[in-house]
């Protein structure tokens, strides 16, 4: 790794550890390997959002050309958000792409991601299904996002109705995450989710 990248990450790492956000448990950074090329970030779900109370883990890969090019960041914790892929965790955020500036740091990136959680951009989506739900049925979106926060990020709000529907699908032999994705995509309409899951299976069987 280029010297400047490693040097800078070391300094930033210290900066984040000392920062007041860490003191408030809002953000956190950990080393994954010794040569500072890969880090694990963590952000707290911002208050007054469906993500409140959750802890979201991020994978941060530092390119050799850092800080002239942005770090590669994705969510490891599954999350229901218009600008974050519910499948891969890929993030659509301008500062992680063309709006990156060399003076930005791990701290500012993590704080920007936290800001993204409280202010989604459904017109520039990463996950089209989530963005559609966000625009057409905001209440359904918030309930779904809160449920995902509860299940994957340790959020406090348990949605018994949603859990029951997932249980029904699990009883039919569907994996719980798959069931959750299908139900979330169809506004928790059990019939349509079941239909989608089983026609998909049927085509797969026919295809095989």
């Amino acid at each position: 790794m280029a010297n400047i990248a490693a040097q800078r990450i070391k300094r930033e790492f210290k900066e984040v550890i000392k920062s007041e956000e860490v003191a408030k448990c809002a953000i956190k950074v950990e080393l994954v390997n010794d040569n500072y090329t890969e880090l694990k970030g963590e952000i707290a779900g911002p208050p007054d959002t469906p993500y409140e109370g959750g802890n979201f883990v991020l994978e941060i890969r530092v390119p050799e050309t850092y800080p002239f090019n942005p770090p590669k960041v994705r969510f490891i914790t599954k999350i229901w958000h218009p600008n974050i892929s519910s499948v891969t965790g890929a993030i659509c955020l301008d500062i992680l792409k063309d709006q990156w500036a060399a003076a930005m740091t791990l701290r500012t990136v993590l704080l920007s991601l936290q800001a993204l959680l409280s202010a989604a951009e459904p017109d520039d989506p990463q996950d089209a299904v989530v963005a559609k739900q966000f625009k057409e049925n905001i209440d359904m979106f918030q309930m779904t996002a809160r449920h995902w926060t509860n299940v994957y990020a340790g959020g406090p709000h348990v949605n018994t109705e949603f859990n029951e529907k997932i249980k029904r699908l699990q009883d039919m032999g569907v994996d719980d995450h798959q069931a959750r994705v299908a139900l979330s995509s169809y506004n928790w309409d059990l019939e349509r989710a079941t239909e989608q899951l089983f026609t998909a299976r049927l085509t797969l069987v026919i295809f095989v």
Binding site: I4, Q7, R8, R11, E12, P67, A102, A103
Partner: peptide, 9 residues
Amino acid sequence: TFECNICLD
């Protein structure tokens, strides 16, 4: 005060 904004040195 005199740190470079890019390399932080």
